[in-house]
Nucleic acid binder design. Structure first.
Lengths: 341, 341
DNA sequence: GTTTAGCACTCGAAGCAACAGAGTGCTAAA
DNA sequence: TTTAGCACTCTGTTGCTTCGAGTGCTAAAC
């Protein structure tokens, strides 16, 4: 069967009406939404065709039509008119996002916050880290006779810090020794190289100072692991409660979001600037009733991380896709600017 | 009407049975739970009396009885046999909690985690901060020509750090100037004194260096405000989903938990070591269907903060109260030990 | 050949009666 | 004072009917 222009218009109207109301849309309801006038019977015929072609489906025989995954896909790829963010919105977003400048983690937190608020969905983001991130700097700050704060700064700009207790009093020599070991073994090395195995051999080589120093390096390894793994931020998951159609799956969905690793995979996958997965297009079954819009950002020209939103399949794609592009572009710009000095 | 010993036994049995099953308990079900034998009719009479006295109520005429707030209160105050944690549990808890030693924030996070897991409730905790907390140390770590990390350490051991951009390049002189200003104006001062007003006069007095330095001090003030306010930790809120009886209120409850300030008030209120609020005893209406167990901890003999759990009214008080006391004692001990050196 | 009016049909939602089951309160006997 | 017995009340479930929305099909109109 052929996709005529009239069918396209009807499909678009069905998708838009369903996104707006959340109710299956019937032939009569559509009459007012179209820019040509035909009877409801004609629309019924066309909708039956669209259903046969796989773009629409019926929850049950006597209900209206609902877009299928294929229907959304066709709409997004061919029919949708993007709705660029207004100047006001751009300014408001830019203001909020740039207030989190400095640490990339804060920046992404702010960006997630603003996205979640604007879209009414859950927002996720990944840090501009990667396997290639290296140790840029390690600091030790003694804060008591036996307690010190270890601070790790990565090449990606991420900062992690943790307190740490030593079994022996901390002397200025201890501090000096810490810095020299760091300079020799850690600075400039990839984060993932700081494994416990590497630590064991290192500590063994310290001889009499092993006892004194070991807890600091263990803490440093913790921080490195933390920097590598805790790269997923989540905001606004409670927004999901407002979407009735997620129904009973909402609890599993929230559990899924809390996990982190799958989200990290999800966001790192796509190659395109923007990546949209509708319902069953998602490989995770917990997302089968949800849609995901992922927008990647570049730092100094290279693909670094991504922002995403997760919500019901009936997202307002026409609006949200440009918004996501705008925010991720902004994040990329700010990070590019702040990282190279 | 008089509270006989038999009535007490019946009340205890009703409360315990309801806590266990969540179902209204009928006279026949109670037969097996009592250490004396009477007929169900006798129990019915006694239960009717207890209902009249306000300790029990019926969801509807032909249902079993459910404890009222008053009933739980009587049970907790007079009837309950506390169930101290087993040696194994104590060890397991101590191990998890002490793994978060060092920074108080981490410690409380671990403590909250273990409580949430053990009780199946949401756990909240407040940091051992107070108005009296002072600046112990401020550090600046340059990480780029115009970017630096500001680190604030409080007298309570809390560590906060944030990245910060300056409009001008950061020189060794900048760093030195930062330290001398900090030493003169911040170290030893209460956190709450670092207000924006104080900052304005300070920055003004810096003369030509004002532009260069101001963003650092603004960041420092942010950190101080953060240390003062972000003192509420929340763990395991998703556990609440497992409690069916919270019903539709669960969403409002979770929103309430996410807020922070009311929780902070809630935890700071009680004077006793342990503080239990059952259902409507709570002044917040969002907690009207929930119970709260708050256990305060002391650091070096003075009341510092608290740990709490929030769950349905049918908590296993006999078990959870001693557990909370144990964990908060542990937290107090660890903090006392780590803070005085 | 396409569009439309008309109509029978399907299915879910809502309302209602019947009924089983759990549990109570009361009365009268032990 | 306790107990057995019984009538009563209330909930939850099941099955039935009705209502309405919306479809699909057919036959007539354009």
């Amino acid at each position: 069967m052929e996709m005529t222009q009239r069918k396209q218009k009807i499909l678009a109207a069905v998708v838009e009406s369903y996104i707006r109301t959340g109710e299956p849309v019937g032939s009569k309801n559509l009459l007012g939404e179209l820019d040509f006038s035909v009877s409801s019977a004609t629309i019924r015929n066309e909708m039956a065709d669209l259903a046969e072609m796989g773009y629409l489906e019926q929850p049950h025989t006597s209900a209206g039509r609902v877009p299928t995954t294929l229907g959304y896909r066709y709409y997004i790829d061919k029919l949708m008119n993007k709705l660029e963010p207004t100047e006001e919105d751009r300014k408001a977003i830019a203001k909020t996002v740039s207030s989190g400048s400095g640490d990339p983690e804060q920046l992404l937190e702010k960006a997630g916050e603003v996205i979640a608020r604007l879209t009414g969905c859950a927002a996720v983001s990944t840090m501009p880290l990667g396997e290639k991130a290296t140790v840029r700097r390690a600091e030790i700050v003694p804060v008591g006779t036996r307690t010190a704060m270890i601070v790790l700064l990565t090449s990606a700009g991420t900062l992690k810090s943790k307190a740490c207790r030593s079994d022996m009093p901390i002397t200025p020599q201890t501090v000096e020794r810490f810095y020299s070991v760091c300079a020799a073994h850690f600075v400039g090395k990839p984060l993932e190289d700081i494994s416990t195995v590497m630590l064991q051999t290192l500590v063994a080589s310290l001889g009499e100072h092993a006892l004194e120093m070991s807890s600091f390096f263990v803490t440093l390894a913790d921080l490195a692991a933390d920097a590598l793994s805790s790269d997923v931020l989540l905001e606004g998951q409670s927004n999901l409660f407002n979407h009735r159609e997620l129904g009973g799956n909402i609890i599993e969905l929230m559990e899924f979001l809390r996990k982190g690793e799958p989200i990290s995979k999800l966001l790192s996958k796509g190659k395109d600037d923007i990546d949209i997965k509708i319902g069953t297009e998602n490989e995770y079954k917990q997302l089968a009733n949800s849609s995901v819009i992922i927008s990647h950002y570049d730092v100094n020209g290279s693909r670094s991380g991504a922002l995403g939103i997760i919500g019901p399949t009936r997202l307002n794609y026409a609006k949200l896709i440009p918004y996501m592009q705008f925010v991720s572009g902004l994040v990329g710009d700010i990070l590019s600017e702040s990282i190279d000095d």
